[in-house]
Design a protein around this nucleic acid. Structure first.
Lengths: 255, 255
DNA sequence: TAGTGGTCTAGACCACGAG
DNA sequence: TCGTGGTCTAGACCACTAG
C-alpha cells in the first residue's frame, strides 16, 4: 500500500547532531568559547559519547571546532587565508616568502620523490626543513628536496648551524634560472614529525602542496609542504581572500 | 636513575595498524583487489572492529582504500591529477573546460556567497550546477553563482531545458571582460546533494575550490567546486602531474 | 538471502593539561 | 589531583549490494 516515499531514509544521528550543533555554534556561541565536555553533551542529546564524537569530528574537520586533550573543545575562528601562489614564480627563500628555515640534512628521499627528481634510488639529497607561521601559530611544515647537482658550489661552504646551512642551500638555488614550476594539492594525514611541528596529533588532516621547480631542463627541487587543513584556506592569486563559508543549502526555486 | 626515555609513549593501536596495513598494501595487494572483510581483519589483528575501522578510515582518507557498503573494501588506484588552474584565466564554460552543465535555477545564495558577490541579502541569483567527470567517474560538483546584473541580456532567451539555460548563462558571461580571478582551496565535507552526485556518503571529505571572477570592477561570478578528496589530486600549472606519494619518512643522517 | 560496510551503544582505561 | 579529550572493547542492529 501507500509506500509514499516519504522520508523512508532515517538520517544518521551523528549527521543530524552535527547540523544541530552547527546551528548552535552560529547563534549561541562566539569564537574561543568553550563547549560543555563530551560526556555532558552526549547526555544532553541522549546519545552515546561515540556518536557525539562523530559529530564533533566532522565539525573539527570543517574548521568549526578545535579540540585539545586535557583542555576542552572550543569554537574555532574562521579559517585564515594562507597565500600559496601569490609570487607568480620564484625559488623558495627568495624575497621573504613567509617561511623560516629549521634545519638541513642529507637523506635518501622516498621513492616517489626520487622519481620526480629523476635521481637514482638510494642517492641522498639535501633535505631542507622549513616552517611557516601565520597569525602567531604554526600552519605548515615543509620538506624541500634539493639534489646535490642543483647546488654544485655548496660543498665549499662552512656554516655554523643547521638553519644557516639550510639558508645556504636556498641561496645557491637562487643562482639557477627558474624555467617553470608546477603545483598540486591533495588531502593527506600528518606524519608524526609534521604533527609535532603543527601542534596536532598524528593523523590530523593536512593539505599537501607539492611544488616542482624546473631549471636547466631538470627538476631542480621539489617541495612538499603540509598545511593544517583545519585552520587554513589556501589562496592562489592576488588577495588574501574574502571569507567564504558553507552555509545551509540555498532555497532553490524554478527560474 | 635510568628513566631511560625509551618508548614511554605507546603508539595507538590504530596507528600501528594503519602502518602495517599500508605496508601490506604496497607489497601484497594490487589495485582493485578486495581486502578481507572488517570482522575477519579485526580478528586477524586481535583488535575490536571499531579500532580496525579507525585505521581503514585513515587509509581511505589518504586515497589508499575505497570502501563501499554491501560490497567490500578494495585497493584504490593512485589519485588522478585533475587540472584546476591550467587555463591561465578564463570564464567557466569557455573552450571546453571539462565541465558539463546539469541545470540552472534562481536561488537565494548562502550569506557568505552574497557577501562575496556584493549582492543584497535575500536577492536571488542564477545558480548553475555543473559536474565534472574524469577517467569515467564523477570527480567534482560545482555551484556557479551569477548575479542577474552580470548577464543582463539573459531574460530575452527562451530555452528548452535546464541544461540549455545553464549554457545560456555561461555564454552570456563570455561577453564580459574578465579582469582577474582568485582561487582558494580548503577542506570540507560533502553536503547531501554533492555526496549523491559524487557517489559518496554525506560527510565524505572534499576539497572545496572557490573561484571569484572579477569584471567591470565587481565580482561577476563565484564558483564553488567540491572535488572528491579521496580520488583527486588538484594540479595547478602546466602538466597533468607526475605521481607523488608519501612514503615512509626518509632516513635522515647528519650532513 | 547472505554478506558487506555504516551506525550506535555503554561501558572502560589512558594521556595530557591545568590548578 | 582532577577533568578533559583520545583510545579501545564487545557487542547490536541497520542499509545496501549481489547472487
Amino acid at each position: 500500500m501507500g509506500t509514499t516515499q516519504l522520508e523512508s531514509v532515517p538520517e544518521p544521528k551523528y549527521w543530524h547532531l552535527k547540523t544541530v550543533l552547527s546551528e548552535a555554534l552560529d547563534s549561541e556561541f562566539s569564537v574561543g568559547e568553550i563547549l560543555p565536555n563530551e560526556r555532558d553533551l552526549a547526555a544532553r542529546f541522549g546519545v552515546a559519547r561515540a556518536t557525539l564524537r562523530q559529530a564533533l569530528e566532522q565539525l573539527e574537520l570543517e574548521g568549526r571546532l578545535q579540540r585539545r586533550r586535557g583542555v576542552g573543545t572550543t569554537v574555532a575562528p574562521p579559517r585564515m587565508g594562507v597565500a600559496v601562489g601569490s609570487d607568480r614564480q620564484g625559488w623558495p627563500g627568495g624575497g621573504d616568502d613567509a617561511w623560516s628555515c629549521v634545519d638541513c640534512a642529507l637523506a635518501v628521499p622516498p621513492a616517489a620523490v626520487a622519481t620526480a627528481l629523476e635521481t637514482p634510488r638510494e642517492q641522498a639529497v639535501h633535505v631542507v626543513r622549513r616552517s611557516r607561521v601565520s597569525h602567531g601559530q604554526p600552519v605548515a611544515a615543509e620538506l624541500l628536496y634539493v639534489p646535490a647537482a642543483s647546488v654544485p658550489d655548496l660543498a665549499a661552504i662552512d656554516t655554523p648551524s643547521e638553519a644557516a646551512r639550510a639558508r645556504a642551500v636556498l641561496r645557491e638555488l637562487q643562482h639557477l634560472e627558474l624555467q617553470a614550476q608546477d603545483r598540486a594539492v591533495e588531502l593527506g594525514s600528518a606524519r608524526a614529525d609534521d604533527a609535532r611541528e603543527l601542534d596536532r596529533l598524528p593523523g590530523a588532516p593536512v593539505l599537501v602542496v607539492t611544488t616542482r621547480f624546473f631549471a636547466g631542463g631538470r627538476t631542480a627541487a621539489l617541495s612538499v609542504a603540509t598545511y593544517r587543513a583545519d585552520t587554513c584556506r589556501l589562496t592562489f592569486g592576488a588577495s588574501g581572500g574574502v571569507e567564504i563559508h558553507h552555509g545551509p543549502e540555498p532555497e532553490r526555486q524554478a527560474s
